[in-house]
């Protein structure tokens, strides 16, 4: 090509493994250790301490890891597919749709297994997210704050419908319990299906580059030979599975998918593949801290993690908005 010979340069993508990441893993590891040993029950003093440890503490900690990573990744994928920094499953109605699906299954088949409930939630989350994406394609308002506002409105409508159905069928209390995101009920024998989201994580890792290309927009994606529609469909399916499963097992985890990818992007840019470990790590870290706070703040009782997350998330969300406004 040109006469000047390009000097060997550092490749464009960030390295996957670096000392900072190892440090991050260590910090989150400590947090998870704290989660294992935080609780009212004295696992060392009581005779059945080891048993309690295996029944509640370990599942709960695994739950934190899986749910935190899954919701953070779902947020990231969704932001790439919509080319909008302010969307995530709880600001696009996906969570509300999953709740509606869950409710419908509970009404139609009260004795349904948790797997059936989960399927209902996943299918509804998929349909709802597709509705939202199709709507976005028609209005082409990708760059503005209108997008999350539309999503929140859509979510509110679906949420109201769920509440109405719940009132009519006397399910309001179950709905409330299901929805308040909490790891209290993550116990052995009840949480195992959460492992499904680990598969979602692997899938996101495999197709990471495609999602990044899709994040450049339909036209650039097409010009480099990517089947844009298929990637959107795949992304939506992965988001729906992650959101559906987490909603059924844990409940609503607001803002997690929003703040985590934004913080990582501010610091490291947007190369998805090398960012994914960070997104997972930060997602797990934030959820764990919030859960620890929820578990200790009014000991011996617990505050649902969604409450703490909501407060923390809202503050970070507003901070991000202000920052973006200042920097254009």
């Amino acid at each position: 090509m040109s006469a000047t010979i390009a000097a060997p340069r550092a490749p464009g993508r960030g390295r996957l493994l670096d000392p900072a990441l190892l440090l991050g893993v260590a910090v989150v590891g400590l947090l998870l250790g704290a989660s294992l040993f935080t609780g009212v029950y004295d696992i060392f003093g009581q005779d059945d301490g080891a048993q309690m440890f295996a029944i509640t503490r370990i599942p709960r900690t695994i739950g934190l890891v899986l749910a935190g990573a899954a919701m953070a990744m779902s947020g990231l994928v969704m932001q790439l597919l919509t080319q909008n920094r302010f969307v995530e499953p709880t600001t696009t109605g996906t969570t509300e749709w999953a709740g509606l699906g869950l409710l419908v299954v509970m009404i139609l088949a009260p004795q349904a297994s948790i797997l059936t409930k989960m399927t209902g939630a996943v299918v509804a989350a998929f349909v709802g997210t597709m509705v939202f994406f199709l709507f976005l394609r028609r209005v082409s308002l990708r760059s503005s704050l209108i997008v999350p506002i539309i999503g929140i409105m859509l979510g509110a409508v679906v949420g109201s419908l769920s509440t109405f159905l719940a009132v009519k069928t006397n399910m309001l209390q179950s709905l409330g319990v299901w929805f308040a995101g909490s790891f209290t009920s993550v116990l052995r024998g009840q949480y195992e299906l959460l492992w499904i989201v680990a598969l979602v994580g692997v899938a996101v890792f495999v197709v990471a580059d495609r999602f990044t290309v899709a994040g450049l927009g339909e036209e650039i994606a097409t010009t480099v030979g990517l089947h844009y529609g298929r990637i959107v469909l795949l992304g939506t399916a992965l988001i729906a599975v992650a959101t559906g499963v987490v909603t059924v097992v844990v409940g609503n985890l607001p803002f997690l998918g929003l703040i985590v990818p934004n913080i990582v992007s501010l610091i490291r840019g947007d190369d998805l593949r090398s960012n994914l470990p960070w997104v997972c790590l930060l997602g797990v870290g934030i959820v764990t801290v919030c859960d620890l706070v929820g578990r200790t703040i009014i000991m011996p009782f617990e505050v649902p993690v969604s409450l703490i997350l909501g407060v923390v998330g809202a503050v970070v969300f507003v901070a991000l908005l202000l920052r973006r406004r200042r920097h254009g």
Binding site: R13, V213, G215, G217, I220, V224, G269, D270, D271
Partner: peptide
């Protein structure tokens, strides 16, 4: 080309190799 993704020049050019 409205790109919200935060990429470096080199990363963007790299996607031409996709």
């Amino acid at each position: 080309n409205h790109v919200v993704t935060r990429l470096t020049v080199r990363q963007l050019v790299g996607f031409g190799r996709f």
